[in-house]
Design a protein around this nucleic acid. Structure first.
Length: 374
DNA sequence: AAGCCGGGGAC
DNA sequence: GTCCCAGGCTT
């Protein structure tokens, strides 16, 4: 049990230089004419922050302006009909944001005298406001110190300090918060936070960042290493290959299903499973050729994915009815008829148990034209 | 920790 | 098509 190595934080002189560079750049190139910046008040900052969650600035602007025309103050939003609020959100996506926004307005009217709270804890307890949005409201709307960590800040910090790993991973997120907390200045916090977001949105963009225009280029570790593309780290691809197979549920007329014993080693080694037919082949001829059974396909069940340590197996169960046994090919030692009404104690592969639970031989299976079960 | 929500833009 | 975006909530 070992903790992740304690990552060093920049010393105070370095942090100070960092903030100074960012603020200097902001004075020249920062965005100061966004709709929620003039006039700027807590209500407008809050609404903009919610709209900007997972949504780009250019998309938000028109929605924000229409929203403010209809709901110019927190009170008018709180008293609005929820259908009207949702109407103003239509097309923006993530509609829980709008429901939370409306509910939040009513909570603030009821519990905070109609004023958004300033402290992080109260802000975060409100619906739709998480740690980063709380920090943004506290800093941008009230001018107090609070770190933020949105997608822009994540990207800037991950590159500048070459933070390894995908930010969706808890340890990586923790490290990025730690850096943001440490680097955010006590004073001019609003400008600093806005500057970091502007940097991420305008300069330190996802692809082809404009390092020539970046105030932090001299100290950027990723750039020094020539590895900007590695940061922020991407979500680990499951990289597991996907295989597929049909598992055949061969029913006779007395509630029996044909099971086949797996080879002693390998996947499901030694367990009983269903006969496995390659997805490229049809179940009927496969049964005839490999099991010596003449069968008639009834239906397919919906496919499901079973994941092993090293690959995914997409399984399509196919249900068939036994019509005739042709004794020639059957290898009786590895086959057994398994009675669904009086099941024996056999070792079944887990997905096979699941499939068999979904088989009820007493209820005739309706088959549509596609051969899919209804 | 992982899945979900959602429409749009960049590539 | 894929990935990502001024994230937060639920399981």
């Amino acid at each position: 049990m070992s903790n992740t190595p304690a990552a060093a934080l920049p010393d105070s002189a370095e942090s100070c230089r960092f903030a100074k560079q960012v603020l200097g750049w902001f004075a020249q190139h920062g965005r100061t004419h966004l709709p929620w910046q003039n006039p700027r008040n807590p209500y407008r900052v809050w609404v903009s922050e919610i709209m900007l969650q997972q949504t780009q600035v250019t998309t938000v602007i028109d929605y924000f302006n229409r929203f403010m025309e209809s709901f110019p103050e927190l009170k008018s939003l709180a008293e609005a009909d929820s259908d009207l609020v949702m109407h103003h959100w239509s097309g923006l996506g993530y509609y829980a944001r709008a429901r939370n926004l409306h509910r939040c307005a009513q909570l603030v009217m009821a519990g905070h005298q109609g004023k958004l709270p300033k402290d992080l804890e109260s802000l975060q307890s409100l619906p739709g406001i998480g740690r980063s949005t709380a920090g943004a409201i506290r800093s941008l709307a009230f001018g107090h110190y609070a770190p933020i960590l949105d997608g822009n800040v994540k990207r800037v910090l991950a590159r500048h300090y070459a933070v390894e790993g995908w930010p969706g991973e808890a340890a990586v997120l923790k490290r990025l918060w730690q850096l943001s907390e440490h680097l955010t200045p006590q004073y001019q916090c609003a400008d600093y936070n806005q500057a970091m977001m502007d940097l991420g949105a305008l300069v330190c963009v996802r692809t082809k960042p404009l390092c020539g225009a970046c105030p932090l280029a001299q100290s950027c570790v990723a750039r020094a290493r020539g590895e900007i593309d590695r940061y922020p780290g991407k979500k680990a691809k499951s990289s597991k290959p996907v295989r597929s197979a049909q598992l055949l549920v061969v029913l006779d007329d007395t509630d029996n299903v044909l099971l086949q014993k797996r080879p002693p080693s390998g996947i499901w080694g030694g367990l009983w499973s269903l006969p496995e037919c390659p997805t490229e082949q049809l179940g009927e001829p496969w049964c005839q050729a490999n099991l010596g059974l003449q069968v008639k396909q009834l239906c397919q069940l919906s496919s499901r994915r079973h994941t092993f340590s090293h690959f995914h197996l997409d399984i399509t169960p196919v249900v068939l009815r036994l019509e005739k046994t042709l004794k020639a090919v059957m290898d009786e030692s590895s086959l057994v008829w398994y009675n669904l009404s009086l099941p024996e104690d056999l070792g079944l592969a887990a997905p096979v148990s699941t499939i068999l639970q979904q088989i009820d031989p007493k209820i005739p299976i309706v088959v549509n034209n596609e051969g899919e079960a209804r």
